[in-house]
Simulated scan of single mutants.
Amino acid sequence: MPEKSENTRMTAWVRGRVQGVGFRWWTRARALELGLAGWARNTEDGRVEVVAEGSRESCVKLLELLKGCDTPGRVDGVVERWSEPRGSLGGFVER
């Protein structure tokens, strides 16, 4: 497992009542606070897909926030995938 200071890419799919409730905006704000780059977008099946790159520690914190109870709407589950950062992301945007 990579050290916590090593950069990584985290992709998370969040399911529940997460569209039309400000979830992507909230995710963007948290990601920017953590110094992460990436994006959040609605998927056709009702989930929100979140891609974040930065320190492993910050990505883990964002994942914990996505799974937490203080999100807009209602999160029923989160599935994540970890991979090598691509380094092509700048800022954090809502798609």
Rank of each mutant, 00 (worst) to 15 (best):
M1D: 12
E3T: 11
K4D: 10
K4V: 13
K4T: 10
S5M: 05
E6T: 15
E6L: 08
N7W: 08
T8E: 12
T8S: 11
T8N: 04
T8K: 14
R9M: 10
M10C: 14
T11K: 04
V14D: 00
V14G: 05
V14C: 05
R15D: 14
G16I: 12
Q19N: 06
Q19D: 13
G20V: 06
G20C: 14
V21W: 03
G22H: 07
F23N: 03
R24E: 09
W26T: 08
W26E: 04
T27W: 01
T27E: 02
T27N: 04
A31P: 05
L32H: 03
E33K: 09
L34T: 01
G35E: 02
A37D: 11
A37N: 12
A37Q: 14
G38A: 11
W39I: 00
W39F: 15
W39L: 02
N42I: 13
T43Q: 15
E44H: 05
E44T: 07
D45Q: 07
R47Q: 13
R47E: 06
V48H: 09
V48F: 11
V48N: 01
E49W: 09
V50L: 07
V50Y: 07
V51S: 01
V51W: 00
A52Q: 01
E53F: 02
E53A: 11
S55P: 04
R56N: 10
R56Q: 15
R56A: 11
R56D: 08
S58L: 01
S58N: 13
K61D: 07
L62W: 01
L62N: 07
L62I: 06
L63P: 01
L63R: 10
E64T: 03
L65R: 06
L65I: 03
L65P: 00
K67P: 02
K67F: 00
G68A: 15
G68V: 02
C69I: 05
D70Y: 12
P72Y: 04
G73A: 14
D76T: 02
V79K: 07
V79P: 00
E80C: 07
E80T: 00
E80V: 04
S83W: 07
E84D: 10
P85L: 08
G87I: 14
S88L: 14
L89F: 15
L89V: 02
G91L: 00
G91Q: 13
F92K: 08
E94D: 08
R95N: 03
